[in-house]
Computed example of a mutant assay.
Amino acid sequence: MSQLAQLSEAEIEERFHIPSRTAIQFMLAGFVRERESFSVQFGVNRDTFQTLLLAVQPDKDRLIFDCSGSQETNRRLLDSEQLSFAAHPGGILVHFSTGPAIDVNFEGARAFAVKLPKVLVRLQRREHFRIETPRVRPLEFFARLADGALFNSPVHDISVAGIGLSANNVPDSFAVGVVLPNCRFALPEEASDLFCAATLRNITELEGRAGLRLFRIGLQFNDLPTADANRIQRYIARLEHERRDLA
């Protein structure tokens, strides 16, 4: 059995979580310096916008970040009890959660402030290993579209960063950059479905057997909770173990 398959959820969290206050401050300060773009997600509707981290203020136990250009979006953010930040510096997924934000003035302009996160999660490139899912009894992915229609498609491959679909057709509303806020799929041997938001990253048309059209659709998970990322990690480890046993 692979090392990953033998890890408990607590061990996975210990491996990927950065709980050190000093290390968190150092990493966030680096993102400020490099002007790394973060997505911030909030509210019951999982509103999202891109932001920049502006300053780390350890003496005030707070992180300053830029506000949205939309006043309505800013209002909804200030009404939210929890915020989730994510970025991919150098292809490495970094995410953290905070409590509510407050309005502040930073260097003469409006900005937001939150308390410094207690934990920062960093998943290395090697942990984004993408594995093809079984063709027999494939995983099924479901997404609610903006017009209320339900889209579903078999899953082709999966990683903790995203999921690939194989579809015979693509809804008219699909385009690179479109966010699907209400998605779900089930993992074998899991008691509950996994719910997430995802962004369309690529759509590729292929020629299938007998000239049939086939589309590969790549989706990136948006701020996937750590517990759900751990569930996917365990599923990938099980597949690897089963395939090695059959080899």
Rank of each mutant, 00 (worst) to 15 (best):
S2R: 14
S2W: 13
L7D: 01
S8C: 08
E9P: 01
A10H: 10
E11L: 13
E11D: 04
F16V: 14
F16N: 04
H17F: 11
P19T: 12
T22A: 12
T22G: 05
A23M: 15
A23G: 09
A23S: 14
I24R: 06
I24S: 00
Q25L: 12
F26P: 01
L28C: 02
A29T: 14
A29V: 14
G30C: 05
R33H: 08
R35M: 13
S37C: 13
F38I: 03
F38P: 00
V40A: 01
F42M: 00
V44A: 10
V44K: 13
N45P: 15
D47R: 07
T48A: 06
F49L: 03
A55I: 09
V56M: 04
D59L: 06
K60V: 07
R62P: 02
L63Q: 08
C67S: 11
S68L: 05
S68E: 07
G69W: 03
Q71T: 14
L77F: 06
Q82R: 14
L83W: 07
L83C: 01
F85M: 06
F85P: 02
F85Y: 08
F85T: 02
A87I: 15
P89D: 03
P89V: 15
V94A: 03
H95E: 11
S97E: 12
S97A: 15
P100M: 05
P100I: 08
I102L: 08
E107K: 13
G108L: 11
A111D: 05
A111H: 05
P117H: 07
K118F: 10
K118G: 13
L120I: 15
Q124N: 11
R125W: 06
R126V: 11
H128G: 04
H128F: 13
R130G: 02
E132C: 09
P134I: 09
P134T: 12
V136L: 09
F141E: 00
F141S: 00
F142K: 14
L145D: 00
D147Y: 05
F151I: 08
N152V: 01
N152H: 13
N152S: 13
S153Y: 02
P154A: 02
V155D: 02
I158T: 03
I158Q: 03
V160H: 03
I163V: 09
S166D: 14
N168V: 12
N169Y: 09
P171T: 07
P171C: 04
S173C: 10
A175K: 15
V178Q: 04
V179W: 05
V179T: 08
L180Y: 10
R184Y: 08
A186E: 08
L187E: 06
L187G: 00
P188R: 10
P188L: 11
E189I: 07
A191E: 15
F195I: 06
A198Q: 04
T199A: 05
L200N: 03
L200K: 05
I203P: 00
T204E: 10
E205K: 12
E205M: 09
A210H: 07
A210V: 13
L212F: 15
R213W: 10
R213T: 11
L214D: 01
L219Q: 03
F221P: 03
N222L: 09
D223E: 15
D223K: 06
L224E: 01
P225H: 05
A227Y: 10
D228W: 04
N230G: 04
I232E: 01
Q233F: 05
I236C: 02
E240H: 08
R243K: 05
